[in-house]
C-alpha cells in the first residue's frame, strides 16, 4: 500500500490482525449487503470468542450463521435473530450470549461510535427490558435512556463500487448498516464488486469517504435472497 491506495490483494491480508476475543462490527440487513467473503475469511481463520455487532446473524449455513458452526461467536449484539436454528440452539444452551438492541439504537450506537460520541439519550426502549440498568433522564417532560456507543476492533463492510482511495458507493438497500459500520472500526475492511480509479466516481455521490477505510478488496458475491417474493 502507498499513499491513499487502500487496495489489498487477498482476503488473508484483508483480515490480518484479527485475534480471539475481538469485537467485529458487520454491515448488512438480513442477507442483503453482507460482507460475505470477509465473513467466510473469519470462518477460515477460526478466530474464537468474538463479539459480533450486526443487525442479524445470517441464516443457517450462510452469512454470519457460518461463524456459529465452529462456535466462534461469544456474543451477538443484534436487533433480530430469528432466522437461525443453530443460533437459537446455542442461545438456549447458554453457549452464546445475545444483547438484543433496538434497530435504530443499534444504528445510532455505530454512528455515534464512529463520530466520537460516547453515549446518547433516546426515548426508544424506555420502560422496557432494554432500559434495565441504564440512566434515565427527563428532557422537556419526556423520559429518555442513556445508550453507549459502539466501536469495533474491526468493521467489515460490503460496498458496490469503490475507488482505490476507499471512497465507497452502496447499491440500493444493500446500503443499510454498512455506512455506519464503516465509521466505527479501528480497522475498517470494505469488500466491493468493482474497484475503479480515483476520479471515476462523482465526489458528491460517495456514501463512505475513504478516510474511514483502511483496507479495500474486490470480491465476487453470491447475494443470496432470503424472501423471494414476486408478483405474477
Amino acid at each position: 500500500m502507498s499513499g491513499f491506495n487502500k487496495v489489498v490483494n487477498s482476503y488473508d491480508e484483508a483480515m490480518a490482525g484479527l485475534e480471539d476475543g475481538m469485537t467485529v462490527i458487520a454491515g448488512g440487513f438480513g442477507l442483503c449487503g453482507i460482507p460475505e467473503n470477509l465473513i467466510a475469511q473469519v470462518k477460515k481463520m477460526g478466530t474464537k470468542d468474538l463479539t459480533i455487532v450486526s443487525n442479524n446473524c445470517g441464516v443457517d449455513g450462510f452469512g454470519l450463521g457460518v461463524l456459529l458452526e465452529d462456535r466462534q461467536v461469544k456474543k451477538m449484539v443484534s436487533s433480530y435473530v430469528g432466522e437461525n436454528a443453530l443460533f437459537m440452539q446455542q442461545l438456549l444452551a447458554g453457549e452464546l450470549e445475545v444483547e438484543l438492541t433496538p434497530q435504530g439504537t443499534l444504528a445510532e450506537k455505530m454512528r455515534a461510535g464512529g463520530a466520537g460520541i460516547p453515549a446518547f439519550y433516546t426515548a426508544t426502549g424506555y420502560g422496557t427490558p432494554v432500559a434495565e440498568g441504564k440512566d434515565v433522564r427527563d428532557f422537556k417532560g419526556r423520559n429518555y435512556i442513556l445508550e453507549e456507543s459502539i466501536t469495533g476492533d474491526f468493521a467489515i463492510v460490503k460496498g458496490w463500487k469503490a475507488d482505490k482511495f476507499g471512497n465507497v458507493i452502496y447499491r440500493h438497500t444493500a446500503q443499510n448498516f454498512n455506512p455506519m459500520a464503516a465509521t466505527a472500526g479501528k480497522i475498517t475492511v470494505v469488500e466491493v464488486e468493482e474497484i475503479v480509479e480515483p476520479g471515476e466516481l462523482d465526489p458528491a455521490h460517495i456514501h463512505t469517504p475513504g478516510i474511514y477505510v483502511d483496507r479495500l478488496i474486490v470480491g465476487t458475491f453470491e447475494k443470496r435472497i432470503e424472501q423471494r417474493t414476486v408478483r405474477t
Binding site: 440487513f29 438480513g30 442477507l31 442483503c32 449487503g33 443487525n55 434497530q103 435504530g104 443499534l106 444504528a107 445510532e108 455505530m110 454512528r111 458496490w160 447499491r171 440500493h172 438497500t173 444493500a174 446500503q175 443499510n176 448498516f177 454498512n178 455506512p179 455506519m180 456514501h207 447475494k223 443470496r224 435472497i225 432470503e226 424472501q227 423471494r228 417474493t229 414476486v230
Partner: peptide, 28 residues
C-alpha cells in the same frame, strides 16, 4: 428481482417513482 432491493421483511420489492434509499441511521 434484485437481491440488493428488499424491504424490512427481507422480501424482494421495487421502488415507486420518487423513492429514496438511505442508511439505517438515516431511516431511524
Amino acid at each position: 428481482i434484485d437481491a440488493d432491493m428488499i424491504n424490512a421483511g427481507k422480501q424482494t420489492v421495487t421502488t415507486v417513482t420518487g423513492a429514496s434509499i438511505f442508511s439505517s441511521a438515516e431511516s431511524f
